[in-house]
């Protein structure tokens, strides 16, 4: 009855803003591959703590490393970790969530017990423990983040699946004796995308924040490699007098996170959700 759909299309503005912000980070990632900037890990005692100039667009840090080059390099790690981490969390979470929702009963109880157990610890703590046990390598960080984030996806998938089970087309598929694995993969999974897509995008943003937090504490990306969290940690003691050290990596981080949030908001609105 209401004409609100033709009235305004608020998702477009979110998409455009999100794309521009993400575009900056992706551009940085591409530039980091071309080798346009000097080596991000090359130190130079003579050039340390210089302000932005033609030679060093974003200045240099306390070890004379080029901040611009480090920002580009950090985007590489950020994208790599968040995308693979979310991929792991998505796969593990959606599969377990589908199983729990579809079979219910005992299976549901066990899976939800596990995922709730993970969720009731602060995520960063769990990731820290995992890294402390298995050692702070990039691989371990990604796996740990994947495990910490899996329950979010499991919950979304489980709730969605339970809702869909009462739909007539799923009942029909059962009457046709379609195998449960096929019902889950072909009949249910595509219909979960409206819920999973925004969760994925938000997951990317949250994972990046986690990774930055861990790197800040020295447990994520290992020196001398650059990561936004690590760059912020390094800049901490210098930021009052040499603000470029903290401003530029912060801005990049903000671009990425904000871009993802805008994107997820846009997706949610255009899929028919409320804009709130």
């Amino acid at each position: 009855m209401t004409a609100s759909k033709t009235y305004r299309s608020p998702s477009r503005a979110y998409y455009v803003t999100g794309a521009v912000l993400l575009g900056i980070v992706i551009l940085a990632f591409i530039l980091s591959l071309t080798g346009i900037a000097p080596s991000p890990n090359a130190t130079s005692a003579a050039e340390k703590l210089q302000g932005p100039s033609a030679a060093h667009l974003m200045g240099t840090d306390n070890m004379g490393r080029d901040v611009f080059a480090r920002c580009l390099a950090a985007s590489k790690y950020t994208l790599l970790i968040s995308v693979t981490g979310v991929l792991i969390a998505f796969t593990a979470g959606v599969i377990t969530g589908l199983l729990a929702g579809y079979f219910g009963g005992f299976c549901d109880r066990i899976i939800m017990l596990f995922s709730n157990s993970i969720m009731c610890f602060p995520g960063i703590l769990l990731a820290l423990v995992a890294v402390a046990v298995f050692g702070p390598s990039l691989f371990n960080v990604v796996i740990a983040l994947g495990v910490v984030f899996a329950p979010t996806f499991a919950r979304v998938a489980r709730t969605g699946t339970i809702g869909l089970l009462s739909q007539e087309y799923i009942m029909h598929a059962k009457v046709l004796k379609v195998r449960p694995s096929r019902i889950m993969a072909v009949h249910i999974f595509p219909n979960l995308m409206p819920q999973l897509l925004p969760a994925t995008v938000i997951g990317l943003a949250n994972m990046t924040l986690f990774e930055s937090g861990m790197s800040y504490l020295g447990l994520g990306v290992q020196p001398p490699d650059a990561s936004y969290g690590k760059m912020l940690a390094d800049a901490q003691s210098y930021m009052m007098h040499y603000p470029w050290m903290i401003i530029f990596p912060s801005l990049m981080l903000v671009c990425y996170i904000l871009g993802l949030y805008f994107l997820s908001e846009g997706i949610r609105i255009s899929l028919g959700g409320e804009s709130r």
Partner: peptide, 17 residues
């Protein structure tokens, strides 16, 4: 063979296919 048709035309088909 057994076939079944349910009541609700809104949810009798899978919207993704």
């Amino acid at each position: 063979g057994l076939g079944v048709v349910f009541q609700d035309p809104g949810s009798c088909l899978n919207p993704s296919h």
